[in-house]
Design a protein around this nucleic acid. Structure first.
Lengths: 217, 217
DNA sequence: ACCTGAACACCGTTCAAGT
DNA sequence: ACCTGAACACCGTTCAAGT
């Protein structure tokens, strides 16, 4: 056991971190890394910071806004150097894959943090560099990031919750009913083929090709 | 006031609907239509059906699974006749737009109901009819439905929660900092231009063009 | 003016005990 | 065997009342 400086009562504990937005967000990131986003509750954070849940509302608007701040914190570590577009998007997706619940939350958030803007800027830059007209790039960046986020939200939750092994098997059997679902039966196993990684990257390729080829109205 | 047949006590009320999966799902749909998915709680449904929340678990596995059943119920009304691909996908999106929280839930669900399979089958058929190779169609259907669902989840929640008018304005100003975000500043208002409908349809067009052009690995 | 204790109004899910 | 009352273990957010 490490020596404690002094045993102090809760009442006169000395100068712990004073509360601030940064301290609240840092605590949220810490708890999420250690125990998952589900454990990041206002009450838990308050406990962590020796105060009551109401006090947190001085620094964050609500849970959704806090999730946005947590995302931006995570994106600070994103490496932008020496990447092509698919690689950068894959790195972004990898970050979210580790926290699928955060991805789910982000999907309904329109993030606006500094690091998210930096990511948008980099994606725009790479689209521009490959000759995509700015109008298509401007709308396309949304599509690309949405694909990344939705895939992370979808994937992660499915491996989290233990559903779908028996039930996917069962659905697959029903789907093969050639009378009711002729086209599904026709494509067969292809519907569920490929790894998550392969399908993610194919999705990016599809989007990039489509964005380059499709004029905005 | 309509005449009541007879005043009955709770104890000996006559033959109300006996509980069944269909009755539980129907109650969920009814409450969602009237008051939104947020009000569809196990306790509320139980109250509606004169029982306790525990009884519902005889008929549904959990909330997520119930949401899947509700989606499939909604899709029963989807009109498949005389549509091209973009039109069909738009109709599906319209259904989800009315219940953004359901869309959010569906995103992490891999729906497997009969009506969802019917939709997948129709999309596969239309892709096939337009000459897309089956391997690309098989992976592409996921991309198309994910775009629809994610857009509904995103859009709806944003107009539900009153965020983002002042805060989007503010983010837009920050983003125009040409030193920090040169490419964002370069594209300017294009980033936020267009109606939801326009961007949704453009997204479908992008995906369809990309799917047709991109081989699976 | 700034902060927070306590309350408001709820949740999903489980399980022992009934019938 | 089937069903359920009651409990377990929590939530986010608000606001009156303190300092």
């Amino acid at each position: 056991m490490a020596a404690r400086r002094e045993p102090v009562s809760r009442r006169d504990r000395p100068a712990k971190d004073p509360l601030s937005r940064a301290v609240v967000v840092a605590a949220a990131v810490r708890v999420m890394r250690a125990e998952g986003l589900e454990r990041v509750t206002m009450r838990r954070l308050a406990g962590e910071l020796d105060t009551g849940p109401a006090s947190l509302y001085v620094y964050v608007d609500n849970m959704a806004e806090l999730h946005g701040a947590v995302l931006d914190e995570l994106l600070a570590e994103l490496d932008f150097s020496g990447t092509d577009l698919v690689e950068l998007l894959s790195r972004y997706t990898q970050v979210l894959f580790e926290y699928p619940s955060l991805a789910r939350s982000v999907l309904t958030l329109r993030p606006s943090g500094a690091n998210y803007l930096r990511l948008i800027d980099a994606v725009l830059g790479l689209l521009d560099a490959s000759g995509v007209p700015v109008s298509r790039a401007a709308w396309g960046v949304d599509l690309l990031l949405q694909h990344a986020t939705a895939t992370a939200a979808e994937h992660g939750t499915r491996s989290e919750s233990g559903l779908h092994d028996a039930s996917v098997q069962e659905a697959a059997l029903v789907a093969m009913d050639a009378d009711r679902y002729p086209h599904v039966a026709g494509v067969g196993d292809l519907l569920w083929s490929g790894s998550g990684e392969q399908r993610l990257r194919w999705g990016f390729a599809v989007l990039i090709a489509g964005i380059a080829a499709t004029a905005v109205p």
